[in-house]
Simulated assay, not measured.
Amino acid sequence: MKFGFLEDKTEFECEGFSVKILEEFDEIMDVFRSSYPVSGGFIYAPQKQLRHSPKEKREFNSPEPVVSGQLLFLPPTHKLCSEYDEEHNAFLILGYGFLQGLYLCPEGQGAFGRTPYEPGSINGLLLYRSDREKGMEAINNYFINATTEQRSQMRACIHWYLIAYSMDHEWERFDAYYKVLDGLFRLNFKLKPNNSKFIRHHERPVELANLFGIQIPAWAVVNGTASILSIQRNELAHEATFANQPIGFSVPQVNYSFELSAFLTKLIAATLGLKTDYLYSEPDMCNYLMWDIK
């Protein structure tokens, strides 16, 4: 199965599958650097010409607008050679994108509007030494041992976690990340057998952090019956406000686009069974780090 888009030329093999670059990799990179619209680390979808309606043609002399397209289709750069079926392969590609900090997808599947192209963009983590083999073996084992429902939920979590980075507005990213947090709670509590404990929204980040020994961010600490995070979530989900203002008028003091994203990176990695000291790093650490998977 071909997939991309990825500038990393490293090839590797795991039990049952391998990742190789395509023979035309260098030519694809030449075309990318000479013709694809990029800015601020993102590749943007081609522009789309809109047309005036018949009524507008009669009443307006202004130019017809040119807007960015909604879907971005990129050429594949790699191929996954495996003994598995299509669903399994698609999960491996998505998981490799999680490790690379990029939204990687099978040939013919598009990204939404724009997508980063530099490894580590989304998660702030770089692959190191044998991280590819060790990380992908853990991800493969997760898929093999998970139930159908667990596979589907994990796929949704990784997919939306990666997509969120490309969203334009702070409140959009917060909303997306909170959905991923809820999905991870469902994976680790509701989809585990013999687990009927009811856990309220403000308690869920703490329970997830404690489950894996991850440090609890200050905004997730429960004070009475709420946390800073749960109050922000209730505002956005139920009151059409964000940071105590109508959505779009203000942003929170907490940089959720970084800190909540980093928290989710750790939770996804821990749920997948990745063994790395990154899980125990400070919640607000903002330097690029190595995965260094054990």
Results as ranks from 00 to 15, higher is better:
S261W: 00
H169A: 15
F25Q: 01
I93G: 02
E203K: 13
K192A: 09
A220N: 03
H88T: 14
P119E: 03
T271E: 07
G120S: 10
Q253V: 15
R132Y: 06
D292E: 08
L50Y: 02
E172H: 11
A156K: 14
E27H: 09
Y142H: 11
Q109Y: 04
R51E: 09
C286Y: 08
F42K: 09
L289Q: 15
R233K: 14
N145F: 09
E59K: 04
L274M: 08
A209D: 01
I158Q: 02
Q109I: 10
K57A: 12
L274P: 06
G101K: 05
T77P: 00
G69R: 09
L104S: 07
N141V: 02
E203F: 00
N244F: 14
P217W: 15
F3W: 04
R132H: 15
F98Y: 10
P46M: 01
D131R: 08
E170P: 14
G110H: 11
I216A: 06
F212W: 12
P246N: 01
T147Q: 02
T115H: 00
E59F: 02
M285C: 08
T147V: 11
M1V: 11
V222M: 03
G183R: 04
F32N: 01
W219I: 05
I293P: 06
G113H: 06
S230Y: 04
A270K: 15
K48G: 01
P106I: 01
F91V: 02
P65L: 03
K266S: 05
D168Y: 04
E64K: 01
N140V: 08
T241E: 02
L274S: 04
L191I: 06
A176G: 08
T147E: 03
F212N: 09
E23H: 13
D131N: 07
F185Y: 15
L104K: 06
R129W: 10
A220H: 02
R173P: 07
N255V: 11
Q232Y: 05
S18N: 03
F242Y: 14
K294P: 12
A164N: 09
I293A: 07
K2C: 10
E172I: 09
Y165A: 13
Q153V: 15
N140Y: 01
L126P: 05
F98C: 12
Y96T: 10
L126R: 13
D292L: 01
S257L: 00
D182G: 11
P46S: 10
A243S: 12
R33F: 15
F12N: 10
K192Y: 01
H52I: 00
I231Q: 13
M154R: 10
F263D: 06
F91E: 01
P65C: 03
F3H: 10
Q150V: 06
E203W: 01
Q245D: 10
A220S: 12
E86G: 01
F32C: 03
S261R: 15
V221H: 05
M167K: 14
N61S: 13
E137M: 11
K275V: 15
D30C: 02
E172V: 11
L187M: 15
Y142D: 05
G124F: 00
I144W: 02
G273V: 07
G135A: 07
Y44E: 07
N188V: 14
S68H: 13
P65V: 00
P205Q: 09
Y165D: 12
Q253S: 14
K294G: 06
R151W: 03
L125H: 13
D30H: 09
E24C: 09
V67Q: 06
E7W: 00
H202G: 05
P193M: 00
L229K: 04
T77V: 02
T115K: 03
L184T: 11
L104G: 11
A243C: 08
